[in-house]
Design a protein around this nucleic acid. Structure first.
Lengths: 219, 219
DNA sequence: ACAAAAGTGTTGCTGTTACACCCATGG
DNA sequence: CCATGGGTGTAACAGCAACACTTTTGT
């Protein structure tokens, strides 16, 4: 086969987390030119003896220092001009984690979480990619596809926090009392018995998802 | 960059249609070894000056002789052993058309529609691919993602035909009367005034989707 | 006559929406 | 005191599930 059928492929991980009712994405700051100082998605090139799924998991593990994570194939980007010199195909993966579990290490590259509504200056076409994958993850949250809500909230949360997250994703306000009844009366969440502390106002009750009830259910 | 970062990519189109209440897929019969006489998905290799989306549309047009079609990125397959000699990455596309519009030409390769529940002997890993993409298209039908139902039924249909299609996709029987009320009383379909002819029994009313009502709605 | 389809009715259940009102508690 | 959150009530409404019953019309 002619050599113009040789293609370069990179894998990019778009890692999301729910934090204080916001949808956040994990980014690295680029240390060298081009796009020095800009933020980019963690990623790497694919060798011809590796699978994309393995590569995406490897990047996730290296970036977050976590061993397990849910990685979902998302869109592929193959525009001819997406990189300056030569066309590189980007296969993106959508990953979800709990922000509190990720240990941001001040190693060879600067990393940070960003609100998906307040993205910093991004290198290459990564802003376009993040916007596209963010739309996809929002659809998945609304439909609870593959029980993605359990990945966003593996630990305890308060109802106001969960509601703010829904309002962010849906882009509209919801009634607090109906929200309460939907989740508590219908047993989608269970009271952990623990309360929040440290903020002004009445302490919030910490809830946890009722996995049995949630699996396969759209809420 | 080292040459072991050179990857070969092919684009495969999984073309679906709704026909007499069944979910069908379009396949080609392979004319040469290996897998001579087996059925495979239409596809082609990607040159490094082409985009995947363009390639998928080109294959679709060549295969169906139709100029326009909805093509949706589906899964990517990169297992190291999916082809006998060297690893080839397959980017699959999900396409929908109306079987009646596709003119099967007896050209250089034999083509046919197959019920997704009765697939023939398939070459390479194409059976695995078809099963995975079929699951995806079923989910999209149930959620009417991207108004996919309008692509499956761009023309007239009878309610029994639509119901059989739903029963195939959902894998369960539905009540005819509730089905009728859901679609007719809620104005998801409109009567075209035309009736079917030629079969025994009372002629069926041909309906058409009410696009305005259907867009963005899960039915 | 029979097969296949069209069409109307009813009842109960579940879940949503849009509200009002009251209580608890930490800073 | 006030900000923040918890919790109950209720009335209207929409949609779905599970049924019965009746009519139409081509072959």
């Amino acid at each position: 086969m002619s050599e113009n059928y040789n293609n370069i492929i990179e894998t990019l991980d778009v890692i999301f987390a729910a934090s204080t009712g916001k949808l956040k994405v994990f980014l690295k700051r680029k240390q060298e030119e081009p796009y020095k100082g800009y933020w980019i998605l963690p990623g790497d090139f694919l060798a011809n003896n590796e699978t994309l799924d393995d590569k995406a998991l490897e990047i996730y593990q290296k970036t977050t220092s976590l061993s397990n994570g849910k990685l979902i194939q998302s869109k592929i980007f193959s525009d001819l001009d997406r990189y300056p010199d030569k066309r590189i195909i980007a296969q993106t993966y959508l990953a979800i984690t709990d922000e509190r579990l990720v240990n941001i290490k001040s190693g060879d590259s600067e990393c940070a979480w960003f609100d998906t509504d307040e993205l910093p200056k991004l290198g290459y076409d990564h802003e376009k990619i993040i916007l596209a994958v963010t739309e996809e993850v929002k659809t998945r949250i609304i439909n609870n596809t593959d029980d993605i809500l359990l990945d966003f909230f593996p630990n305890d949360f308060t109802l106001p926090e969960l509601q703010k997250f829904y309002e962010t994703v849906l882009g509209k306000k919801m009634d607090r009392r109906n929200f309460y009844k939907k989740f508590v009366s219908q047993d989608f969440v269970v009271d952990t018995g623990v309360k929040t502390t440290g903020s002004s106002g009445r302490p919030g009750v910490l809830y946890r998802f009722n996995e049995e009830k949630m699996r396969g259910r759209r809420v």
